[in-house]
Design a binder for these strands. Structure first.
Length: 289
DNA sequence: CAAGGCTCCTGATAGC
DNA sequence: TGCTATCAGGAGCCTT
């Protein structure tokens, strides 16, 4: 379940092991892995073959590699279970191998997209005209993420206040702020002592500034853990670590004591998933009319 | 247009 | 033992 830090680890792995290499052949082994590609699997393979990867970029949970001509990019999303692996040619196929990309060089490795639940995938898209980073047009609506130097904090606060929604929904809305998933949302809200159903319009500027700080802290800490492991194993271009290794304060801790006050943590069904929170530190908002 | 709900998928696990 | 139900969840798409 990769969120921003895990995806950034993958991006760094691709930068090291894939950038600059040219594609010799592409095999699409499962149609769902290219379902966002407008032309389907055959077209994806045909158009990617012969292209050269430029330096990979990331926005939120999306990553893309501009092709050398710069007007076209390979877009990738890991979904819930996706992995990008650089493997030796001839290594046994992974059980959920979906796409294989062979290179036209003698380095002896290939790029594999492996994905059990097939929520993720790869696709080719035109770049937004004038984008110097080759931003794929289909993700132009995705907001910059909180680690992006160009993230507009003032605009973010104004947008939050204008919304008629609750704070966790807003954190997960990738058009407001990108890169935050269910896990880091719960962690950030716990740190900020905010209940997930708190209306965004009720957040003061200092409180939303504090929340944003916690989002950055949680992600930076996870990135510090994940960022250290990728280059020791060259096959590990897959975004492991992150929250898998770090201790979580909220997510998954139902009935365990709150690390601040000792009160048993609770889990509530929420949007077909779960929200974990401390009922004492994170008080439910008064029902509004 | 904004907000919220539905749906895609597979494997682990719980429950009977 | 073996079956079924439940859960995990990102984001496009649909409805209200």
């Amino acid at each position: 379940m990769p969120e921003l830090p895990e995806v950034e680890v993958v991006r760094r792995g691709l930068e090291r092991w894939v950038a600059g290499r040219s594609v010799a052949a592409v095999e699409v082994l499962h149609p769902r892995a290219v379902r966002r590609h407008p032309g389907g699997g055959v077209d994806f393979a045909a158009r990617l073959t012969g292209q050269t990867f430029d330096v990979p970029r990331r926005r939120g949970k999306y990553l893309w590699m501009p092709l050398a001509e710069r007007d076209l990019s390979v877009l990738g999303h890991l979904g819930m279970s996706g992995q990008l692996l650089v493997q030796p040619e001839g290594a046994p196929d992974e059980r959920h191998l979906r796409i294989r990309i062979r290179f036209a060089d003698d380095l002896g490795t290939e790029l594999r997209f492996v994905d059990q639940r097939t929520f993720g995938g790869l696709s080719l898209h035109d770049s937004v005209p004038g984008s110097d980073e080759g931003l794929p047009d289909v993700i132009a609506h995705i907001a910059r993420d909180p680690l992006d130097p160009l993230f507009d904090e003032g605009a973010y606060h104004l947008a939050l206040r204008a919304r008629r929604t609750t704070v966790k929904r807003a954190l997960l809305d990738q058009s407001l702020i990108s890169g935050v998933g269910n896990i880091y949302a719960d962690e950030s809200l716990w740190r900020a002592k905010l209940h997930y159903e708190r209306p965004t319009a009720s957040l003061t500027r200092p409180k939303s500034t504090e929340l944003l700080g916690h989002v950055r802290d949680v992600m930076t800490a996870a990135l510090a853990v994940g960022g250290t492991s990728f280059d020791s194993l060259y096959v590990n271009v897959n975004g492991e670590s992150g929250y898998f290794d770090r201790s979580l304060d909220a997510y998954g801790r139902e009935d365990e004591p709150c690390r601040r006050c000792g009160t048993p943590m609770r889990r509530r069904p929420w949007m077909n998933r779960s929200s974990y929170f401390c009922p004492r530190c994170q008080r439910a908002p008064r029902a509004s009319s």
